[in-house]
């Protein structure tokens, strides 16, 4: 504990590592919400992604490479996203409620498959930290930035990519148009349904990937309901970030950093000779409180709330 620099670099490393699943899931949700669909099923999709990824990689399952696990998570997440799109776009179901349905289904189905196919806790050797020549050996930055597994880098790389797609491509323009004014978009020939199908499916794939990052890159295990609410946090972070990928990343980092830091405060509390006695449950609350408090003080953000969020679109027939 005496090596303060070492500990701080570890805090940075862990913050980036544990922000990864939030980042994947939240970025996917940004696309869905920007096009006007609230997907509250992220939690369930993450669990399904986490299970399929680890099952594909594990010796108890198919014993394939971690990349095959990622592929499996993308596929299962995409399929669930597609189903969500069908329900919320074609069938125009209420999005909050169908999302909760997907969450329940994902929780139940992933646990059931886990029980039937695996029988007990699965562990794998998932994505390992990459060592970069020179960089990884740097003091402070080596630990903090250059000893991560590949999914961490992918997650952060997806932030600028998302910004670019949303703001600089015609697809991004369509997404925003569909979320802001679907009738207008429709009138200029954009298929609202098609765009929403794409974004919600994409969001599902990202949520699946978020689950995979938990199971085969961060924890390397699967346990029933292992996401424990992370999917809902990911949705909340989209609001925190006001639908901007950069701000969403800020929220994910803030939340992750606060979670890691409160662990260190607990550790510090239990050091011999430290007599401060903060009940751990009050420390565990800190990240959640912090997210709210920061939002209060960061008020003057420009609002881009998609006007058509949660509103199904039905074309006016001739």
């Amino acid at each position: 504990m005496t090596d303060i620099v070492g500990v701080i670099s570890e805090i940075v490393r862990l913050t980036l590592l544990f922000a990864t699943p939030f980042l994947f899931a939240s970025l996917g949700e940004v696309f869905a919400q920007r096009s006007g669909v609230l997907n509250l099923g992220v939690e369930g999709i993450m669990l399904m992604g986490a299970f399929f990824a680890i099952f594909v990689v594990s010796d108890k399952g198919l014993a394939l490479s971690p990349w095959a696990g990622v592929l499996a998570a993308l596929i299962v997440g995409g399929l669930m996203g597609l189903a969500m799109a069908f329900v919320s776009v074609t069938l125009q179901a209420q999005q909050g409620i169908s999302g909760i349905g997907f969450t329940l289904f994902g929780q139940g189905m992933s646990s059931l498959l886990f029980k039937v196919l695996a029988g007990g806790v699965i562990t794998v050797r998932g994505f390992q930290p990459i060592t970069f020549p020179v960089l990884s050996g740097l003091p402070f930055f080596g630990t903090a930035l250059f000893q991560h597994n590949i999914l961490v880098y992918i997650a952060f790389a997806l932030v600028p990519i998302s910004v670019w797609v949303l703001n600089r491509t015609s697809f991004g323009l369509q997404v925003r148009a569909v979320g802001q004014n679907p009738a207008a978009a429709d009138s200029v020939g954009v298929s609202v349904a098609r765009v929403r199908y794409i974004t919600v499916t994409l969001g599902g794939m990202m949520a699946g990937l978020a689950g995979a990052s938990l199971s085969i890159a961060i924890t390397n295990v699967f346990q029933e309901n292992m996401t424990a609410g992370a999917g809902f946090i990911a949705v909340a972070l989209v609001y925190f970030g006001a639908w901007s990928p950069w701000r969403v990343m800020g929220g994910a980092l803030l939340f992750s950093a606060a979670s890691i830091l409160q662990n260190f405060v607990q550790i510090f509390n239990s050091l011999r000779g430290v007599t401060i006695n903060i009940p751990p449950n009050l420390l565990i609350m800190v990240p959640y409180v912090l997210i709210i408090v920061v939002l209060i003080f960061a008020r003057e953000r420009k609002r881009v709330e998609p006007a058509a969020l949660t509103k199904p679109f039905e074309r006016e027939e001739g």
């Binding site: 504990m1 924890t219 424990a228 890691i260 662990n263 260190f264 550790i267 239990s270 751990p280 565990i284």
Partner: peptide, 27 residues
Amino acid sequence: EVLITYTGSFGDTAAAASAAQAHIAAG
């Protein structure tokens, strides 16, 4: 030294992983 952290949950595997990593970082 025995360092103690609580995750505030029984089933949050990721929180347990992050707490463990914090312990490891602390030595």
